[in-house]
Amino acid sequence: MRGIVLLAHGSRDERWREPIEAVAARVLQDDPAAHVVCAYMELATPDLHSAASGLIADGATAIRVVPLFLGMGKHAREDLPLQLDALRKAWPQVVFSLARIVGEEPELVELLARISAKS
């Protein structure tokens, strides 16, 4: 089974989670068999390790981490590679892959441009 972790920055404000959880809900709407969870770098739970642990307990043998960041900041550039290395050491039998940060995806750039240009 393949799991998906939607990884975002995190916030103490509970409302901040709503758009992240909406993405997870949309993934499930498009594929009801998907195994998708949200995780946060800081200020919210679960963290990446806990999210991966839950997916693995449910039978995941591969996990794709999708960073929901607009830019290549410190978390994506420095913290995330270290966390992935730790996951790979903790679960060497699981294949962990890292998607590009969403802000680098041409589809998102196009969408943001269209939204920005609305009158």
Rank of each mutant, 00 (worst) to 15 (best):
A60E: 07
A86Y: 01
V66Y: 08
G73S: 08
V102E: 01
A99V: 08
L80Q: 05
F96Y: 02
I63F: 12
D85N: 13
L98I: 02
E105C: 01
Q93E: 11
P81A: 11
I101W: 10
L68P: 05
I101D: 07
K74G: 07
P67Q: 08
L98D: 01
R88T: 13
A99G: 04
R88A: 15
E78R: 02
A76T: 12
H75P: 04
A76Q: 05
L70K: 05
L87I: 07
Q93R: 09
I101V: 04
V65A: 11
A99N: 06
I63W: 12
V95Q: 05
L80A: 09
L70E: 08
E105K: 07
P92I: 12
T61V: 13
E78W: 00
K74D: 15
K74M: 14
P92S: 12
P92F: 05
L68S: 11
P92D: 06
G59D: 04
V95A: 14
A62F: 06
T61W: 09
L98C: 03
I101Q: 01
A60Q: 06
P92T: 12
R77I: 02
I63A: 14
L87G: 14
P92L: 12
Q83Y: 09
E104N: 09
P81G: 13
A62H: 01
L87W: 04
D85W: 06
I63C: 14
V94P: 12
D85L: 13
G59E: 01
D85G: 15
F69T: 06
A76N: 09
G59H: 06
F69G: 01
D85K: 15
A99Q: 08
A86N: 10
V66I: 15
W91A: 13
M72D: 13
R100Q: 14
A90V: 03
Q83N: 02
V66R: 07
M72A: 15
G59P: 03
V94L: 11
V95P: 00
F96P: 00
V95S: 09
D79W: 09
R77H: 10
W91S: 11
R100E: 14
L87P: 00
G71Y: 12
P81K: 09
I63P: 11
A99T: 03
Q93G: 11
L87Q: 00
G103T: 05
P81E: 14
K74V: 10
S97A: 04
L84W: 06
V66S: 06
A60R: 11
Q83P: 02
A60P: 10
